[in-house]
Amino acid sequence: MDRTVTPPTAAALRAEITQTRAELGETVQALAAKADLKARLGHAVTVRRAKVTGALDRMAHPLRDPLHTPLPDERAVPVGRAPARPASRRYWWLIPAGAAALAAVGALLTRRG
C-alpha cells in the first residue's frame, strides 16, 4: 500500500486561508460583543423597562388585558340592587358593643375585689 499525499494547490490554500480569516473574524466579533459591557447593560435596561412599562399599563387598564379576571369588587352590580358594603362598614357597631361589654366586665370585677 503506497500512500502518497499530494500537496494542496495554491488556490486551495488561498481558499482555506480566506475561510479561516472569516471564521476568526466572526469569533473576534463575538468576543468583542461579550466584552462590550455598556451595550449589554443598555440592552438589559431596555428589556427590563419594556417589561415594567407593560406591567404598569396592564395594571392601569385591566380591561385591555385579555387574561384579566375581575376581582369581586370589580364585578357589575345587577340593576336594582345596591352593592354590598365592605366588611369594615358592616360591623361598625361591634366596636361600641365590645367596649360596653368590657366596661361591664370591668365593673363586675372591681365590685368583687
Rank of each mutant, 00 (worst) to 15 (best):
G80H: 01
P78K: 03
K38L: 15
L94G: 03
A12V: 04
R40P: 02
R90V: 02
T53G: 01
R14W: 01
E23C: 02
T110S: 14
E26I: 02
G113P: 08
T20Q: 09
K38G: 12
L63R: 04
T18D: 05
A44S: 04
G98N: 02
R21W: 03
P78H: 02
R14I: 00
T27P: 04
A104R: 12
A87E: 06
R14P: 00
H43I: 03
T9R: 00
D65S: 02
G42N: 11
V47R: 12
D2H: 01
G54Y: 01
T18H: 14
A97R: 03
R40N: 13
T69G: 05
R3A: 05
G113R: 15
T9W: 14
A101V: 04
V52F: 00
R48V: 03
P8Y: 15
P70K: 14
A107T: 14
E26N: 06
V5H: 11
W92P: 00
A55W: 04
Y91K: 02
A44V: 00
D2Q: 05
Y91C: 03
A39E: 15
L13T: 04
E26Q: 10
P62H: 01
G106Q: 12
T46E: 11
R89E: 11
L67P: 08
E26K: 07
T27C: 12
G25S: 09
T53C: 01
D36S: 14
A10R: 09
H68S: 12
R3W: 04
A55N: 05
A39R: 15
H68Q: 11
R89W: 01
G42S: 10
P72G: 08
R64G: 09
D2W: 02
T9H: 13
P78A: 04
A97C: 06
L31S: 10
L13F: 06
V52A: 04
T46Y: 07
R64F: 02
A50V: 01
P7D: 10
L24K: 05
G80C: 05
R112L: 14
